[in-house]
Simulated scan of single mutants.
Amino acid sequence: MKSAFKKRESRSGYFFTLPTLLIVFSLIIYPLGYAIFISMQRTNLISEWKFVGARYYAELLTDAEFLSSLKISLTFAFFVVVGNFVVGLLLAVILNQNLKFATTFKIILMLPWLLPEVVVALIWKWLFNPTYGLINYILNTVGLIDSDVSWFDSSTSALVGVIFVATWKGYPIVMIMMLAGMKNIPSERYEAAAIDGATRIQQFRHITLPGLRPIFLVTCILETAWWFKHFTVIWLMTSGGPAGSTKVVSISIYQQAFGDFNFGKAAAESVIILTILLAASYFYSKAIRNDND
């Protein structure tokens, strides 16, 4: 009887997990496997299918243009993630002080995250417009510039501009996660530290930051994965220009696939990016495990 019951219970377990397994296979395993398959083909996805093996991977690892886009992606993601953490953590500390109208400020500060990326890109592209943009108008009014500046005609200012806009768009989620983490730190720790004579800065350094470490690492994984492969804001604001100075790897993939119709090479680029992000996630998760130990 026990054996029959265990078998029936085992079958029930498989039955209830089957829908989840099907969803995982449909949304993750099959698309990933198909992308790897395409990366080994020279194909237009319709009539041309020719197996080329690891040819595209070998080409990309020595392709100066791809390596340049990879470097730009790393630079863009690094400064956006750092900017998000600096701004998000600073605002979280301020909002954690039981300020009057704190809820109103939270709603206002969350607005950039709630706006669609297309809207954000178009708003800031208008603000940076050299002819009728509000930024040039303000700078001219206060006397900081004496002529209109074409912000996206310079390689440096274009990259700085898209990093600034991406940071403006992305800091709210970091702010909310840091604020949630601060709420979970027991107030008794701060009270004991205050009794021992610790200053606010010392409390922040020795209590707040260690308490936020697990959230900090998880947020790093999410932020790095999101901004490293980001496309929308950069494409709408600069299209990768000028002279490829903002051509991140996602734009390179897009142009390979829908400009040159070289879907195999575009898929190979995507697989390389996936590998890089998996490696980064591994090191992040290893740091989290070490922290928990």
Rank of each mutant, 00 (worst) to 15 (best):
D63E: 11
I108S: 04
A158H: 09
G33W: 01
F152I: 11
S10H: 05
K169R: 14
A158M: 11
V52Y: 11
L212P: 07
L115V: 13
G264V: 03
I94N: 01
A266T: 04
P112E: 08
T232M: 08
K2G: 14
F283P: 01
F78D: 00
Y57N: 04
V119T: 14
T167Q: 09
I276Q: 01
W168A: 10
L222Y: 11
N84L: 02
I29G: 00
G181L: 08
L89D: 04
M237T: 08
T199D: 10
K100P: 06
Q97T: 12
V80F: 01
K169W: 09
A268R: 05
N262G: 03
F105Y: 14
M178S: 12
P130A: 10
F128S: 08
A58K: 14
K6C: 01
I185D: 08
Q255Y: 13
H230T: 11
I272W: 02
Y30R: 07
K286M: 12
S157A: 13
A287M: 14
M177S: 14
A192G: 10
T246E: 03
M1S: 14
V86Q: 02
I234D: 04
A268K: 07
L236E: 01
I28Q: 00
I108L: 15
F216S: 12
M178L: 12
I201A: 15
V82Y: 08
G13P: 02
G170D: 07
L209F: 09
G88Q: 07
R42L: 11
L114W: 08
Y132E: 10
N84G: 14
A64H: 12
E59D: 15
Q203M: 13
V24I: 13
L45F: 07
L95Q: 03
A257D: 02
K183T: 15
N184S: 14
Q256Y: 09
A198G: 12
T103W: 10
W126G: 01
V271S: 02
L277W: 04
I253D: 02
F79I: 04
F164Q: 01
S154P: 06
I46M: 12
V119R: 05
W235C: 00
I28D: 00
M1L: 10
K71S: 14
T208H: 03
A225H: 02
S245Y: 10
T17Y: 12
A4F: 10
F263S: 02
S73L: 05
K2P: 00
I221N: 09
V162Y: 08
M110I: 15
K183V: 15
A4M: 10
T43C: 09
D146Y: 13
I221G: 05
I107C: 08
G244Y: 04
F263Q: 05
K229Y: 02
I46N: 13
I215G: 04
I135L: 14
I185K: 05
I163R: 06
Y30D: 00
L22G: 10
W126I: 11
V233H: 07
L18M: 11
Y284S: 09
